Structures are given as structure tokens and as C-alpha cells.
Amino acid sequence: MLRSQFEEDLLNLHNQFYEMGMLVSDAVSKSVTSYITHDKKLANEVIDKDEHVNEHEVKLEKKSFEMIALQQPVTTDLRTIITVMKASSDLERMADHAVSIAKSTIRVKGTTRIAEIEKIISDMSDYVKKMVDNVLIAYVKTDEEDARMIAKMDQRVNQFYHEIYSSTIKIMQDQPETVVSGTDYLSVGQYLERIGDYVTNICEWIVYLATGKITELNSNRQPDE
């Protein structure tokens, strides 16, 4: 009886984590769409929905602690619970960065926009969203191989950021009127780059879940804030 209840609780943890992940994926996508299309209504929606993400994290953490205290799980079960706790914290930070992008949308006044930079930001966002969606599937399947592959995708995210950085700096030097929007582009690029780092963190937790080993997959990441 106890065991089947525990297994049901574990399954619920998995499902709630996946739901939280889908909310975050949606937030990332909508925040950049709002930024590129100057849609302040959509940006406000991202900011308002962030509360749901936070509620999910609190609920997951509470349930995880409860299961550890009451069931005293060992080995694989304990690894599952630890993975959910750690990875949900990474998801929550990803959502915070999506909120920062949405806030940039609301801040932007009628400044001079740079279409070519916005195109790179849009492509970078599509790529990051693909990473987020893929990592959720890898998590559900506990797929170590996929997790390692997704972590490698982060190198392309860094390339996107360098493209945005070098192009923006050059345009800002040539056209001083773009300095305000250019500074914002650098921030948005950096938020997306950090989201890529958090996806890599989750990849590491999937590898831990599959193997029991803590593994660093990308050594060139920024330290956590």
C-alpha cells in the first residue's frame, strides 16, 4: 500500500515538473515575441503568469521534502526527488529571465530599432525554446544521451549572443541614435544566453538521475547568479 502511494506521488511530481516546464517554455517564447513585436499586453501576460511558475516550484519543493521525510526513499527514488527539486529551481530562474525580457518590452520607448539585430534575437529565442522543450522530453524519458546532446546545443546559444554583441556594438558606434535600443538588445541576448545555461543545468540533473553521477557538461558557462 505504502509503496504504491509513493509511486503515485513520484508520478505526480514528474507531471507537475513537466507542467511547470511547459509554463516556462511558453513564457520564454511569449516574452521574446512581445519584445520583437512591441506587444506590451503580451509582455504583461508573461509577468502576471510568473506567479503560477513560482507556485509550482513551492508546491514541488514542499511535496519533495514531505516525501523525503515520510518515506525516507533511497537510491533511485531519492535521486528522482533531488532532481525534481534542483531542476525546478533552474526552471524558476529561467522564468525570471523571461520576465526580465518582458519588462524590457514595457520599458522600450519609441527608440530607433535595429531590424537585423531583432532577427538574430528572434532566431536565438526559437533555438532556446527548442532546447527547453527538448530538455523536458529528455527529463520525462530520463534520456542521458539526449541530455548530453541538448547541453551541446548551448554552444550555438553562445554564438548567437556573440553575434548580437559584436553587431550591436558596431551599429551603436556608427549610429549613436541606436544606443538606447542597442543596450536593451544586449540585455535581452544575455537573458536568453542565461536561459541556455539553465537548460544545461537541467541536462546535468538528467545525467545524475540516469547514472547517479554529478557531471559538468559545459565548462565554459557563467557562474550562477
Rank of each mutant, 00 (worst) to 15 (best):
I169L: 14
T112V: 07
M149D: 14
A147Y: 10
H162R: 14
E55C: 11
S166G: 12
D96R: 01
I171H: 10
M94C: 04
V179I: 15
F65H: 10
I169Y: 12
Y161L: 07
K152H: 12
K59S: 05
T111N: 00
P73G: 00
S166Y: 11
K103Y: 11
A102E: 06
T168D: 13
A87N: 01
S166C: 02
A95F: 00
M85N: 05
T75I: 14
R113K: 15
K141N: 15
L91N: 03
I150A: 08
H162I: 13
S64C: 07
V74S: 12
Y165S: 08
I82K: 08
E55Q: 13
T76H: 11
I150R: 09
A138C: 10
M172Q: 03
P73Y: 00
M172V: 05
S104Q: 13
I164F: 13
T178P: 09
S64P: 04
T142I: 13
Y127E: 06
D90K: 13
I68H: 07
P73I: 02
K130T: 09
I114M: 15
S125R: 04
Y161D: 06
E163W: 14
G182A: 01
A115P: 12
Y185N: 04
Q175V: 15
P176I: 11
E116W: 01
I169S: 06
K63Q: 06
L78G: 03
N158A: 13
V140F: 12
D133Y: 01
N134F: 12
E55V: 12
V157D: 06
E177T: 09
L186S: 07
T183G: 10
R93E: 00
S167W: 05
D174T: 02
H162A: 13
K129E: 08
M67C: 00
K130P: 02
I82M: 07
L136N: 01
S100T: 02
E116S: 15
S89R: 06
V135T: 09
Q159W: 13
S166P: 00
L136H: 00
K86N: 14
K59Y: 02
K109Q: 05
E57V: 05
R79A: 05
R148W: 08
M94G: 00
I137N: 09
V84E: 01
G189M: 10
Y139I: 04
L186M: 10
S122W: 06
M124Y: 09
I68C: 06
K129M: 06
G189W: 03
M85S: 02
Q159Y: 15
T76A: 10
V132T: 01
F65Y: 09
K119Y: 13
G182M: 03
I81S: 08
S166Q: 12
T75N: 10
R79P: 05
N54W: 04
K62A: 00
M67K: 00
K63F: 07
E144D: 09
E118C: 11
N134T: 07
N158G: 14
A147T: 10
P73R: 02
M149N: 15
E61M: 07
T83G: 11
A69W: 05
E144R: 10
I81Y: 08
Y191E: 03
K109G: 04
A95C: 11
T183P: 00
V188E: 06
A102P: 06
I68R: 09
M153Q: 13
E118H: 11
K170G: 04
A151Y: 08
R79H: 09
